[in-house]
Design a protein around this nucleic acid. Structure first.
Length: 360
DNA sequence: TACTTCATCCGCCATA
DNA sequence: CTTATGGCGGATGAAG
């Protein structure tokens, strides 16, 4: 196997199977690819593997993924082996050939990682026994039940236990890969990748992303949509339930109920999201003082803005600004530290979804 | 930081 | 009878 000295190439292999989730596959691989792109050299050699080398349908069957390799032809030396999640994780974890191959390769790889409920498939090898493992919080209970001898920690984004890594849902897989890149290529490059990713995810299209993120939460019920527009256009105003209800000629009770039915979230959560987004944009795109931004975004006092930011994003307003204000060379890009277990602090990259935070 | 105050939100239920 | 409304009270948690 490969010693860990300075190498000029590092093979990353992603295991694919029918019903795999595209997000779990693409997110992490894009991170590795981006690291290559930014560093200007093809350090990561990325391969994808299916059992027979034929294409597999992703979950939902709206896309076929054609792998670079079959089990037999897969590189002998896989440095980092990744197992993605997907709705078909059960079937995959009961596939003898697949689990056998995974076991052999995992034993030879220097680093093995699961994304989301890919943890079930990796756990089926038995190699995770006694290891600390995480998965999407929805599946944590089931994972612990199915594999009593592994230590499930649903509360963290991702975990490293020996050479085995595991991550929670969606973007947590990307956070995990960023930590790997940091190990392999150093912190500055990892942060640069994060920066590119976040800028892309967070502000691609400028104004567009602002509404894009919220678009999904906009209702098609005219009365509710009007209220939502009013909130988005006037985040700094008094948006108390009573006032909004008067504005909409409803009782407060009806407003709360209809809003939740139509928008899928409470009025308060919606307002908080809008205000945080607004404050973020002001931090990014204006040089205004924090106090003023707190007022303009409807977050009130500076102290309160700080609290709300901690709750929603996991960083202070000042930190957020230093990370996102315009591209200046030599700018420091401090994120929360990648601790030894990576579990002490949520990386804010994945913290935009306040909902899942709460349920953890 | 701890504490107080109070808006929010929801279950329950009477009402339209 | 079914369905939407809205008042009431209490638990929760946010703001200051």
């Amino acid at each position: 196997m490969t010693a860990q000295g300075k190498k000029h190439s590092h093979t990353v292999a992603m295991l694919l199977y029918p019903g795999v989730s595209t997000v779990d596959v693409m997110g992490p691989l894009e991170c590795f690819g981006l690291a290559n792109y930014i560093s200007g050299r093809p350090f990561y050699h990325i391969v994808t593997v299916t059992q027979d080398g034929a294409a597999v349908a992703v979950a939902g069957s709206w896309l076929q993924l054609t792998p670079t390799h079959a089990f037999e032809t897969a590189a002998q030396h896989i440095d980092t082996l990744l197992v993605a999640g997907g709705p078909a994780y059960r079937q995959a974890s009961q596939d003898r050939l697949l689990v056998d191959w995974l076991t052999r390769q995992a034993n030879r790889s220097q680093r093995v990682a699961s994304i989301c409920n890919g943890a079930f498939i990796l756990a089926a090898t038995g190699l995770l026994d006694q290891h600390k493992v995480t998965t999407h919080w929805l599946f944590a209970r089931e994972l612990g039940h199915s594999f009593p001898s592994i230590k499930v920690d649903p509360a963290c984004l991702f975990v490293q236990s020996g050479k085995f890594w595991s991550s929670g849902g969606m973007t947590a897989g990307m956070d995990m890969v960023l930590a790997m890149i940091e190990r392999d290529l150093g912190r500055p490059l990892a942060l640069e990748v994060a920066r590119h990713l976040v800028l892309f995810l967070h502000r691609a299209g400028g104004q567009a992303q602002f509404s894009m993120h919220l678009q999904a939460q906009f209702s098609d019920v005219p009365a509710i949509e009007r209220i939502q527009n009013h909130i988005v256009n006037n985040p700094e105003k008094d948006l108390s339930i009573k006032r909004l209800a008067d504005h909409a000629a409803m009782s407060t009770r009806t407003l709360l109920r209809q809003f939740k039915d139509a928008a899928g979230m409470t009025v308060g959560d919606f307002i908080a999201n809008v205000r945080v987004r607004h404050a973020c944009r002001l931090l990014e795109q204006s040089g205004r003082e924090l106090k003023e931004i707190a007022t303009l975004s409807g977050l009130g006092t500076e102290a309160n803005m700080r609290k709300v930011f901690a709750r929603h994003l996991g960083v202070s307003p000042a930190q957020y600004r230093s990370q996102f204000s315009g591209p200046s060379p030599g700018q420091r890009f401090q994120t929360s530290d990648f601790g030894p277990t990576f579990s002490k602090d949520e990386h804010w990259l994945s913290s935009f979804d306040t909902r899942s935070q709460r349920m953890n």
